[in-house]
Design a protein around this nucleic acid. Structure first.
Length: 264
DNA sequence: ACCCCTGTTCGGCG
DNA sequence: CCGCCGAACAGGGG
């Protein structure tokens, strides 16, 4: 389920463990979620250290520990983060468990499209340095969006909204929500967007992200009832504006829902 | 059985 | 070299 707002909520689930030592650790080092990670060094370095803090960038999360250790976690399609009691016994898909004296911090992912990275050193790891402006930041402005759209003129706008190098943290449902609000057909090629459409796209991206963080990101509560997300997966989904039946197609490689009346 | 999936990466192709 | 597209990854649910 995770796009930027859900990622933000999952990240906070480990907050009760901040300031407490890791006293033991469980992982299955051959699992695909650890691809590229040094799974011998990870337990050796982390046990005995204190979990300090965490942050998110788009769909990526960074968890920081004492002695210059950090974990990067990406949730992929089915990744989840949660807290369990200190005597928790991991099952098949609980790939990483950090045990503290009072609780266990668990990362689970049935499909293993997610990923766990580990880094030790006083510099931030290269995979965290990637410098894409967060959508809620001032650096994500109309100029940045226009330049990004210009670099991808031949692609359908739906596909461009899914590119993490420009729209950091946007995924399939947020992309559809933004296009519906901005009244842009998802298959429209980016180079054909008018200046008015580009401005709407920028405004609605900011709006959808901000409102999603206030609801899903805060306490996992639903976004407003008037949003497209509540209709897009229904067989008989309708446009929340005027009840026109939604259309569905694969655009940009992903299932897409839109209103044929609002979005042309 | 068969088809679907809120993500990313890689190889082929134009 | 750039950028677009489809396939692959893996497992659970309808």
């Amino acid at each position: 389920m995770p796009e930027l707002a859900e990622v933000e909520w999952f990240r906070k689930q480990w907050n009760p463990g901040r300031g407490h030592d890791i006293v033991d650790l469980s992982l299955h080092r051959r699992n695909r979620v650890f691809r590229g990670a040094n799974t011998r060094e990870l337990p050796r370095r982390l046990v005995g250290e204190k979990f300090l803090t965490s942050q998110a960038r788009g769909k990526r999360m960074l968890f920081e520990f004492t002695d210059n250790n950090c974990l990067g976690i990406h949730l992929g399609m089915t990744g989840k983060i949660r807290i369990e009691p200190k005597n928790f016994r991991p099952s098949k898909h609980d790939h990483l468990v950090l045990y503290q004296r009072e609780r266990a911090l668990v990362f689970t992912d049935s499909r293993q499209f997610g990923r766990v990275r580990f880094h030790h050193g006083d510099q931030r790891p290269d995979w965290w340095k990637i410098d894409v402006p967060e959508i809620i930041s001032a650096a994500f402005n109309q100029k940045f969006v226009d330049q990004f759209l210009d670099r991808h003129r031949k692609a359908p706008i739906k596909a461009v909204l899914l590119l993490q190098s420009g729209f950091s943290g946007i995924g399939n449902w947020m992309a559809d929500e933004i296009l519906w609000r901005a009244r842009i057909h998802p298959a429209k090629h980016t180079g054909k967007l008018t200046a008015r459409e580009r401005a709407a796209l920028f405004d609605e991206t900011k709006f959808v992200v901000r409102k999603s963080l206030e609801t899903l990101g805060e306490d996992f509560s639903d976004p407003p009832r008037s949003w497209l997300i509540h209709q897009k997966w229904k067989v008989d989904g309708i446009c929340p504006r005027h009840r026109t039946p939604l259309w569905h197609a694969t655009i940009g490689g992903r299932t897409t829902a839109w209103c044929p009346r609002c979005q042309r």
